[in-house]
Design a protein around this nucleic acid. Structure first.
Lengths: 223, 223
DNA sequence: TAATTTTGTGTAAAAAATACGCAAAAACAA
DNA sequence: TTGTTTTTGCGTATTTTTTACACAAAATTA
């Protein structure tokens, strides 16, 4: 047992993991095995330990519950409604993550909890205030994608222009001109073409990669 | 005494309050009266109570410690380094706020702690990891000011174009063309001229106000 | 009254965003 | 094979936005 002179809220992290299957955006959900909200779907997350930062915690819980690791995460914001959790006062620090969905089709962590991708337009009822958290994450994603290049994290290391464009269209919610999009992306300088091509239906498309080094150069010379 | 089955970190909020005196940016600091870091300057903040959100807490602590109230605050991010505080594990959720500095020249809260404005280029040694928090706040401020209009919150309800421009120059760290700045600001439509003028030295300048309603119209029609 | 300071307005050039046109490289069907 | 369809690559013209700079007006100050 642990005693304190003043009451302490519990601290958790929750993570909104975005995935992209080539057509639509999804997020990763875990089905709860215990009350409260038993059977409901929830964001992967859990209690912060005393020897880890909240980033460590978000990362660890994600790996334990869904097997997802080696990904990019960033802080979203904290949610602290007084009655978020019926058991005790719980404050959560929410994170966002972006992964290549096809790398994590087979999902299963050590907790053996049921983990599953859900398309954003087909979300089930979520536990706690997790729907609010997802909304906030989506809003931030929309804002960020026009400023920073994070779409690459949702794609394979190589990708075609149309794949990249589809992400932008899905996230922003409207279609973009194919030719202007191509122009804009290549002008940045940090999306480099490879020798390879991908053929699906019509004319094969050049496969591009995200050049992290040139991206940093671009940032340095523009800000 | 309060006991828990698992260890709980303590949760605090800290607030980076930006003020502007017409020439330079300052932040509001409180001198600590007790150890650790006794005598050091720190961000206003304190422990989150069980019946308040973190936003409530940030707001309350700010009022108690410095008398500042009725202001706009927003979440920055959380800081959770394992050894941030030598007493116990403390996770803080940092906020940013923007005030009209001249409205709060006489500072003093119920705690009667010494509160003082410090220019950003003349900061004293700060307690805990508060310097890191200030840096993060400043970085976010620089990013945000080019996207959203928050400079108004640092100025009086009416202000001249040059006053507004000075804030942008101080925050961004470089000078702007006076005529293009004027054009850009008025084109938005949510900075409305008043009948009044302010005369200081040369030709009197028109006083403008920030029209919150027209700002919302602008946002709605652009996003 | 002239010099100085500061503001308001305008105009031209450069850069970026937008709107399309058309041909090339593949798959598919006749 | 050949023509049709699909999808990509590349180009050009137009509009909009950003940037650079000139000059006159309204006040203060010497």
């Amino acid at each position: 047992m642990y005693t304190y002179r003043y009451p302490h809220p519990a601290i958790t992290t929750d993570c909104v993991v975005f995935g992209f299957d080539g057509k639509s955006l999804s997020i990763l959900l875990i089905q709860r095995g215990i009350d409260p909200y038993k059977g409901y779907w929830a964001l992967p997350g859990g209690f912060v330990r005393m020897d880890e930062t909240v980033e460590d915690c978000a990362y660890r819980e994600l790996k334990e519950e869904s097997g997802v690791e080696n990904i990019y995460i960033e802080q979203l914001q904290s949610f602290s409604g007084v009655n978020r959790d019926p058991r005790e006062r719980v404050i959560t620090i929410a994170f966002m993550a972006f992964v290549r969905q096809d790398e994590y089709q087979v999902i299963g962590g050590s907790d053996a909890a049921k983990a599953q991708w859900y398309r954003l337009d087909e979300l089930p009822s979520l536990a706690f205030d997790h729907l609010e958290i997802v909304s906030a994450a989506l809003q931030k994603l929309r804002k960020k994608i026009t400023i920073e290049p994070l779409a690459f994290r949702l794609l394979n290391t190589t990708f075609t222009m149309s794949q990249l464009q589809t992400i932008y269209e899905v996230v922003l919610g409207h279609s973009l001109d194919r030719r202007n999009f191509h122009k804009k992306m290549t002008k940045m300088g940090y999306i480099s073409p490879t020798e390879d091509k991908l053929r699906v239906n019509g004319r094969p498309g050049v496969l591009y990669t995200f050049d992290e080094e040139k991206y940093r150069e671009y940032i340095d010379s523009h800000f």
